[in-house]
Amino acid sequence: MEILLLNQISPDQVVLLQWGFLRITATLLYTWFVMGILILGSWLITRKMSSDVHASRWQNLLEEVVSTIRNQIQEIIHDDPGDYLSFIGTLFLFIGLSNLLLIVPGYVSPTASLTTTSALAICVFIAVPLYGITKQGIVHYLKEYFQPTFIFFPFHIMGEITRTLALAVRLFGNMMSHDKVIAILLAVTPLFFPIIMHALGLLIGLVQAYIFAILAMVYIASATQAHEKKDGKEN
């Protein structure tokens, strides 16, 4: 009895098309699928935007989502969230929708691929110094790596790398293990229990998207606001 399909092990393993080193895998396909939904949905909803008091339900939904993201960012940085909204909001929406679409039969979340989570983590890894340098200047930003003494420079670098790695592995581990646990439970238990686990999985998916986005924001905030750099919010 085959309890795990190949794509359930890792969508990266499923190659749909290949031209030389160009490989269209299931990860990319599902990523485009999620991107398509986000872009198409945004375009459809926002093409008839209304600044009136009475707005459409979908517009209200999007406004609520965007407003919540802005509030979360503002609570962390205590500043205008406009500069970070696009980056943090896209992280949350992409990861969240990727995880919620697990309810679609045959769909495998791109976040269950270490390649995808690593790519997102690298984006955060690059975004942190970019925002830090933009806000503080390169000298002031680099000076933080030598605080309190230059001896701590390697530890700062290790900290940057490890937290990026943790960011990637945490999301990947959670999403990948969820698929695997569902598959195993489906094989050994009656139908109802996996349904509950599936619902729980949707919640976990949203929580993981929230954690990933919040941690990314905390890292960026620590880089842009030196006095809060070691506030330990990532724990």
Binding site: M35, T46, M49, S51, S86, F87
Partner: peptide
């Protein structure tokens, strides 16, 4: 995926955040 993410962030900034925030 990095490119995809950057494209998505850019497109959503144009189609979603900008418009929604402006409307609000």
């Amino acid at each position: 995926q990095i490119v995809n993410f950057l494209i998505l962030a850019y497109v959503l900034k144009r189609l979603l955040y900008g418009r929604i925030v402006k409307a609000m």
